[in-house]
Design a protein around this nucleic acid. Structure first.
Lengths: 213, 213
DNA sequence: AACATAAGCTACAGTCGTGTATCTAATGCT
DNA sequence: AGCATTAGATACACGACTGTAGCTTATGTT
């Protein structure tokens, strides 16, 4: 119902999707500050008038695109495998962050003039569904099951994984899978009072909780 | 040597400093993408011609300003106080990050078109002096003194503090002093195999690291 | 088949930033 | 005091983006 062949003119959702895709591409390429109706229109192969019929300026188009972007998969803690689930959660995050929508969010968050406009609704939709909730979904799950002392699950600890991912992205070097494993083994698990499975320097017996002093 | 009174016309370093200040202010206000020679010129109260005599485009002005910005204080590990020094290092980082230069660096790092241009020289000058070296200076110092197992000081662990700070800044909530204490107690020290001074809250009486098991 | 809707096309005046080119006059040096 | 520099003040043509407006015509509906 959206790609019947002989058509020469897009309408409704068809058109809007094309425009959404275009803004996302555009913002990744030129940044929020250089977004223009012209650029978006050219990329979507639609005249500016069509854009102005719906949105008042480029940032509005972008915000709308973000609002309609598919939310990321949520990490679903499954088996009895905290470490594995954490790694999977971070992997999800990296995947999303590297997607057009993820990059666009990063762009808008760091733009002084548009960061303001993205308040309320979007903040919620964009962040509630993924913002900082990649690892914390997992962590809460295992905290309830007593896999580690519940008191250890502070806001700071819930942020460690995401923070490390974000820092690497900012440094221009997206974390590889083995980086993610290191994040979990060397930062998150120790903060929970657990130790990593086994490694050369850090010879721990198993994934046994080691209570602090 | 730079503000003799009766003068009506700035020259040399005087002028250049004014321009540097102007770009930094401008970029914080409008973002890298909307930087213009016009805007910089107006803010510095200098005609565009003067700008073009020295730089070819707004981003060059910005890069030059960053290059000449005062580098941050380096954290100097002093007494035998790992925890205190870590907190101080993070405090230094936050201070710098909130300064015009810090904000400008953040802006340029996240701009798709200018991130490329800032390679080489600036990368080194800007990052060598602070990039990720706030806590790691401290950490290396204490690792050599055997305050914790040297093998614990991995690149990941050296990043934890900075990562958490960066994440909070991105979230629009610059970390308070007590946040920084939490970062150290709940994330960095555990990753080193150490535990925070007093467990329940943060009674910062004994700033002495306590070895684990 | 006729109609309402909305996309596509084109044109326009207006604004803003760009580079460049003059000209002037303030400043620092000798 | 005289001179070389170089900031400051225009002015200019050019291009990019902006909103808006008017027209044509594809599309889905009835």
């Amino acid at each position: 119902m959206s790609d019947r062949s002989g058509r020469t003119r897009r309408r409704g959702d068809d058109l809007i999707n094309a425009i959404h895709t275009a803004v996302l591409e555009e913002v990744v390429e030129v940044g929020v500050g250089r977004l223009t109706m012209d650029g978006i229109g050219k990329r979507a192969a639609t005249p500016r008038s069509t854009l102005y019929r719906r949105w008042s300026d480029p940032v509005e188009v972008l915000l709308d695109a973000l609002y309609h972007a598919h939310p990321v998969e949520e990490p679903t803690p499954g088996a009895d495998d905290l470490r594995g689930d954490l790694i999977r959660a971070l992997k999800l995050m990296v995947t999303w962050t590297l997607s057009p929508a993820g990059r666009a969010v990063a762009a808008i968050l760091t733009d002084p003039l548009s960061a303001t406009k993205m308040s309320e609704a979007l903040q919620e939709r964009v962040f509630a569904h993924r913002g900082g909730t990649f690892t914390s979904t997992v962590l809460r799950h295992y905290a309830e099951r007593g896999a580690f002392p519940a008191g250890r699950l502070t806001p700071v600890v819930a942020d460690i994984g995401e923070a490390l991912v974000v820092k690497r992205l900012l440094d221009g070097m997206p974390p590889s899978d083995s980086d993610l494993i290191d994040f979990v083994d060397q930062a998150i698990l120790p903060a929970l009072g657990l130790s990593a499975p086994s490694s050369d320097s850090d010879r721990a017996d198993a994934a046994t909780p080691r209570p602090p002093a």
